[in-house]
């Protein structure tokens, strides 16, 4: 699905933030990405959904090299990737429900209202459907971001700290959603600090844990 080949990335400083990353997110795989704050997890995800272009190496997405894709193809690729952004970006002039349906709207796909309300109920946002994003709490926004990312039933889900602002019970609920998606054959990558979440996931899914540190990627052992 998504492959990184010797990818390096630097925000313009002398020492590159990421160097020589090689990893393959195979179809139907489930990965966690951990690492200290500032290690470059968000940057890694941005490389995966083509918001950033690697300064060295190559990102392949659905079999195409990212640098060869025109803007239309990037857009079409993103229609097949659900992303939970760490800073949850919404359109503030639309209601929460409209924001969650946005990936369908912009690709001219019909919005199944039943699925939309089921999904909003699952993430506990039924009451907030008509509210504008700025009126929501951080945790509510985060749940909405996850709902938006999975609304299209994407082939790949990339989630950046999807449980950062919610209580443990809700974290498990959200994890459940992502595990269910993975059981449908979708590829999932979750960037998180939350070791408890990673541990909790082990009873549902066989996940690999990638650790990002000092610009390098290592496969964490089974000791987690």
């Amino acid at each position: 699905m998504i492959e990184l080949e010797s990818v390096g990335y630097s925000y313009g400083r002398s020492t590159p933030l990421l160097s020589d990353l090689t990893v393959k997110l195979a179809r139907g795989s489930f990965h966690f990405l951990t690492g200290p704050s500032g290690a470059g997890k968000t940057t890694f995800l941005k490389l995966c959904y083509l918001e950033l272009t690697p300064t060295s190496g190559r990102v392949r997405i659905f079999g195409h090299s990212g640098s060869d894709l025109g803007r239309d193809h990037v857009a079409l690729s993103r229609q097949k990737i659900g992303v939970v952004h760490q800073d949850c970006r919404f359109l503030d002039h639309l209601s929460l429900a409209e924001n969650i349906a946005l990936p369908l709207t912009v690709s001219n796909r019909p919005v199944p209202q039943n699925d939309l309300s089921d999904l909003m109920a699952w993430v506990g946002l039924t009451q907030q459907a008509g509210q504008r994003p700025p009126e929501l709490s951080g945790g509510e926004r985060q749940r909405a971001a996850l709902a938006r990312a999975v609304m299209t039933g994407p082939d790949v889900l990339l989630a950046d700290e999807p449980t950062g602002n919610v209580d443990w019970e809700m974290s498990l609920r959200l994890l459940h959603l992502m595990v269910e998606l993975n059981r449908m054959g979708k590829t999932v990558l979750i960037a998180t600090h939350d070791m408890a979440l990673i541990r909790a996931s082990r009873q549902y899914v066989q996940a690999r844990v990638l650790r990002l540190q000092g610009g390098r990627l290592t496969l964490a052992g089974a000791d987690l």
Partner: peptide, 15 residues
Amino acid sequence: QVITVLRLVGARDAY
């Protein structure tokens, strides 16, 4: 900002 968000969710230029 709006355009950035639209692009992130897969909107094409034509849209």
